[in-house]
């Protein structure tokens, strides 16, 4: 029996667990992307495609490539090298910027 045919032999519970894990992963990515001002729908749907590689990709993109910092005045996430907070207008000191 080929490997692909063996997929039908996998117990239903494994499929269900995989679906639950993907749902939790996708939901968390959706929620996190909405907090960061990212396109939450795109990232959320990306998060339900597979695990854990898509989660790793999301974390690399949002935590390293497009890193953000928190405005100490309003608490919103802004770009790492922002001069001003676009939400409250707070000016960041030089020490707060890269």
């Amino acid at each position: 029996m080929g490997d692909i045919e063996k997929l039908q032999e996998v117990p239903l519970i494994i499929w269900i667990l995989l679906a639950v894990v993907l749902l939790i992963q996708g939901s968390w990515i959706f929620y996190d992307a909405s907090k960061r001002g990212e396109n939450k729908w795109l990232w959320g749907l990306f998060g339900i495609l597979n695990t854990p590689s898509n989660l790793i990709v999301y974390l690399i993109v949002t935590r390293i490539i497009f890193k953000t910092k928190e405005c100490y005045k309003c608490g919103k996430n802004v770009k790492e090298n922002a001069l001003y907070c676009p939400y409250c207008g707070n000016k960041f000191e030089d020490d707060d910027r890269i």
Binding site: I4, E5, L7, Q8, V10, L12, W15, I16, A19, L22, L23, G26, S27, F30, Y31, S34, K40, W41, G44, L45, I48
Partner: peptide, 30 residues
């Protein structure tokens, strides 16, 4: 509200994928 809508949509999509897997469309999923 958006999160709840997303969970509902994802559940439907994953359910469809689950049905495909159980119906023997494993090759296509791979």
């Amino acid at each position: 509200i958006n999160l709840v809508i997303f969970i509902m949509i994802s559940s439907v999509l994953l359910g469809i994928g689950l049905v495909f897997a159980m119906q023997g469309f494993g090759r296509e999923i791979i």
